[in-house]
Amino acid sequence: MENKSKEWPIWEIFIRSKNGLEHKHVGSLHAADAEMAIENARDVYTRRQEGVSIWAVESIHITASNPENSGELFEPAKDKVYRHPTFYELPIELKHI
């Protein structure tokens, strides 16, 4: 059983569950081209009306941050409590602020 066929590329699928909400990543699939990616996404990820809109992006076009760099990327935000409203002390009787 030989198989010389080239594997179809992988696509990342994003679904908008209803208007007013953002597209959200739901998973991936294989398709030969963009049109097929949308058709396959419909069958694989929206069999029960899970969506009203589909985005398909070929996986190789996604740039991802490296977990090894998580420290330098995300830790600086850790000690910046002054970016949160609760950092500022105001009298309790004050309303609507």
Binding site: M1, N3, S5, K6, W8, A32, D33, M36
Partner: peptide, 20 residues
């Protein structure tokens, strides 16, 4: 199913390449 579907997978690849 896999062997008999090979031509379909190839045809889809060829079509995608042509379109691109």
């Amino acid at each position: 199913a896999w062997d008999e579907g090979a031509w379909v997978r190839d045809a889809a690849n060829a079509y995608a390449e042509k379109q691109s």
